[in-house]
Computed example of a mutant assay.
Amino acid sequence: MTVAVVTMGGTIATAITADGALPSETHAGALADLLAARGADARVVPFRNTSSRQVGAADMAALAAVILAEIADGASGIVVTHGTDTLEETAYGLELVLGTRPGVPVALTGAMRGPGQAGADGDANVLAAVAAASDERLAEYGPVVVFADEIHLARHVTKVSSTRVDAFGSPGWGPVGSVVEGSILLRHGVPATDHGIVGTADVGEEALSAGGPDVEIVHAYGGATGTLLAAAADRLDGVVVAGTGGGHTALGLTTAVKDVLKAGTPVVLTSRCPDGEVLRETYGGEGSELDLLGAGAIHGRGLHPTKARLRLAFALAAGVGPAVAFAGEM
C-alpha cells in the first residue's frame, strides 16, 4: 500500500525564527526523510505551505482534486498535513466533497509544537496518520482527523485546546478509534450516513473563490442586537446563527434574522454549545427555536456552526437547495 502525504502547511511545517514560527521550505524533505527512516511505503506530495487560518472553501475543493489525482495515480491511502487552527474545517470540507467516494482512507493531522520546540509532536502524528491511512477499514469512515493517537470523525471533531498536544476531541461522541503501536483499534462501527452532499463532487476551486457564496456566522449572546447582521445582510448569500442553548436569539438579533429570511437569504440555526442538538418544539416566544424555525430558519442538525457554514456554502456553490442539504440524518 502506498500512502500519499499531501502537505498544506501549518505548525508542523514551520521553523523558529526571530519573528516567530514561520513556514519552512524544508518541511517536505524532512517528511520524506522521516518516512524513509521508518520504512513507510509513502510518498510526499508538496501542495501548499500556508497558515491554516487562510485556508478557505476554495482551498478545500482544490485539495480534494489533488487527493483524487493521487488516488488515480495509485495511492491506496491519503494523509494531509495541515495547520491545527482550521484542521476540523478542512476535514469536514473534504467530507462534503468526497464523502466515502474515494474508496481509500483519508487522514488529516498536524502538530501543536513545531520542529525544534520541546516535545514536538509532528512526527508522531504523521506516523499515526500514515498507519490510519494504511488501514482500508477506515475508507468507510470518510475523512478522519488523527491526532495524539486518537481518530476522530470529520463531522464531530473540534479543536478543544489552543495549546495542549491533545488538542482535538469530539464532544459528546469521543474518538472512533485509536492508534496503538502502529495498529488501528476501532471503537465504533461505520457511521450510518455519508456526509457528502449530492452535487458537490464536481464543485471546483473557482466556484468557491472570491465571488462565490458568502456565508457568515452570527454568534448569539445575551441581549444581542443584530446590528452587524442587519448592516451586512444585503451582501450575504447565507447566514449561520450560533444560537444560545438549544438555538435561541435575543430580541434584536431575532428581528435581524427574520429580516434576512424575509429577503430570501437562507439561515441555518445551530447552537454555540459544543455538544447537543438544536431543539425543535420545547420553547416558545420571540427568539425561541419554535419562533426561528417557524419563520423559515433551517435546522442545523447538530452541526458545529463552522461546519454548518461550510455545508451551506458548498451546497449553494453546487446549486443544491439549502433545505435539501440539511435534510436527513447528520
Rank of each mutant, 00 (worst) to 15 (best):
A139V: 03
E150F: 01
T193W: 05
G114L: 05
D135N: 08
L261F: 13
G77V: 03
R164T: 11
N125T: 10
D291V: 13
P171F: 00
P213Y: 08
A233R: 11
D259G: 15
A192H: 06
R113E: 04
G172C: 03
V106R: 02
A124S: 13
T7K: 04
E205M: 08
T249W: 11
S76I: 07
F47R: 03
A317V: 01
A65I: 03
T265I: 15
D291E: 14
A133V: 02
R113A: 03
A327E: 13
E281F: 14
A133Q: 07
L63S: 08
Q117H: 07
G114E: 09
A313P: 06
T14W: 06
A28P: 00
I217Y: 06
E329Y: 07
A32T: 01
T200G: 12
G247S: 09
H152K: 06
L138W: 01
G122C: 08
D123A: 15
G83F: 10
A40K: 04
V126P: 12
R43I: 00
P171A: 00
P171G: 00
V324Y: 03
T100P: 03
A15I: 13
R137D: 10
T249I: 12
P102L: 07
G287R: 14
V260G: 10
A57K: 09
L229R: 01
T244N: 10
V157I: 05
R38H: 06
S51G: 15
S52E: 08
A233I: 04
V198I: 13
G211L: 04
P305N: 12
G142V: 02
E88V: 06
L261M: 15
S271A: 15
C273E: 15
G300I: 04
F168A: 02
P305E: 13
T81S: 13
D59T: 10
V260N: 10
M330N: 15
E70R: 09
G252V: 04
M1R: 12
T100K: 09
R113H: 05
A201R: 14
